[in-house]
Design a protein around this nucleic acid. Structure first.
Lengths: 106, 106
DNA sequence: ACAATACATAAACAATTATTGATGTGTCAA
DNA sequence: TTGACACATCAATAATTGTTTATGTATTGT
């Protein structure tokens, strides 16, 4: 048995979101700026519900956020979350442990 | 259809390795220094073959390395790989794209 | 109010990943 | 050389994750 801390769960969720090729592709597209789902389905040439699924995984992990404008949903990277994820990896390496996600105040 | 670049595959592999609670726990232990499998099974109180499985996932992703000493296998973090992973996340965020993993020379 | 658009969600199924128990391999001590 | 130890690997199964098709929901134009 392994005891799982809440932060390990969160870390797991974030890294899991980053572990899929389709989602990495989505992230690359969104790095170029906000896009609606229709842009993304065009770009990736794939089914809408499939993208909806992956966008949800990314959103649940906090890596992207969405905004409705009329009929369209615009998705964009949540840059902070990426910084935090990178920092998390550093903490893992340093054994600073993932038991607290101490956010540095600027 | 989504075209998958080799680097996306590698990134996927690394983040997938980081996406599991057991493996995060292993990483935390190893952050404290090299350990043999027996130390880890004691610490996590779980089956040896289960840990062997997870250690292999981490090793295949390049996050840890192993060293045999007599009957024991010692595992340790591969710190470089963690730095690269953190950098990868930054690149994702910046849209530097994951199509080349350009290693910065120091 | 109605039809069309843009998207989310659900259900059935497929594929991948993790766990468990058994067996195999290398090393050492006697 | 044999037996015990430390670990890896395999095969069967369970659990999780992803895909697809169908359907639901919000918004807009008419």
């Amino acid at each position: 048995m392994v005891t799982i801390t809440p932060i390990q769960l969160q870390a797991g969720q974030v890294f899991h979101a980053l572990s899929d090729p389709t989602r990495l592709e989505l992230i690359q597209r969104l790095a170029g700026g906000e896009q609606c789902v229709c842009d993304l389905t065009d770009a990736l040439k794939t089914g809408q519900s499939r993208l909806s699924f992956h966008l949800k995984v990314l959103k649940d992990a906090g890596l992207i956020r969405d905004r409705r404008e009329g009929r369209w949903m615009y998705y964009a990277l949540n840059e902070e979350a990426f910084e935090e994820a990178a920092e998390l990896i550093r903490m893992l390496k340093n054994g600073d442990s993932v038991t607290r996600t101490a956010k540095r105040r600027c």
